[in-house]
Design a protein around this nucleic acid. Structure first.
Lengths: 131, 131
DNA sequence: ACCGAAGGTGAGAACGATTGTCAATCTCAT
DNA sequence: ATGAGATTGACAATCGTTCTCACCTTCGGT
């Protein structure tokens, strides 16, 4: 859980995947990432994308989350994080920053004796234009 | 997404499913629930179990959560809306109530002109016992 | 109580994301 | 350069979940 038991070698594919992941702000599924690589001309197998993402998640280089329909989505771990307010009709997305929420989560976590707490917050509503 | 426009009829199967769900304390997958019904002699189709659980979740009668491997697990929802603090190691779950978060989301939503905003917040960390 | 209409059910097929398989390929240390 | 072992990729195999469709129930009117 703390170290990488299996030796991990640097490869062209891993680098490409890490790069694409780091380049985008939000969470992406393995399939989306694979599609991006394809369209950018980088030929990488889908299975490899899955394996690389899992490895990164295990090594703490990526965050994993499950969408409502069970798809696994990944995000580069170190980047600053924010949340999204999504319109359920047109899909418009607003990035929001929630210092208040961050503070609250930290407090609640501590109260229950939890450490290394990560959080996911998503707001879904109807935007002014779609009302 | 906000109301249940489709009329929902009471049936033997729905009742059985709701009962089993209410009878157990923790989260269960649709498959586990189905197995329980089978062994207790209640004959219900797996597809029906899935449909019923989804309906209950939509109607706010059940809580849904995704396990790390993407399986959907359900639990009877006591009442009111709350969030979860889940241990990433042992899966222990603490229900938390976040008036501060509720307030914050309402405010942010209003600021951006969004209405009927729903939110999902999940905290994942390592509990004291698993540290 | 009887009927037609619309929702509900169940068995099995279909789906789609993810994982396993295995020969070919690539990296690293020697 | 070379051999050992990690990595890759095309494809098959899993497995939870959803779809299809013919049959069964419940509901509202009569």
């Amino acid at each position: 859980m703390t170290a990488a038991p299996t030796t991990r070698r640097p490869t062209r594919q891993r680098a490409a995947i890490a790069e694409v992941l780091a380049a985008s702000a939000g969470f992406q599924s393995a399939q989306e990432l694979h599609a991006q690589l394809q369209s950018s001309g980088t030929r990488v197998g889908l299975a490899t994308v899955y394996r690389a993402l899992q490895a990164m998640a295990t090594d703490g280089e990526a965050d994993v989350r499950r969408t409502d329909d069970g798809e696994a989505v990944y995000r580069a771990c170190s980047e600053g994080h924010h949340h999204h307010l999504v319109c359920r009709v047109c899909g418009r997305t607003v990035e929001i920053d929630g210092p208040a929420v961050e503070r609250w989560t930290a407090q609640v976590s501590a109260e229950h004796g939890f450490s290394d707490v990560d959080h996911t917050l998503e707001l879904v509503g109807t935007c002014a234009d779609c009302r």
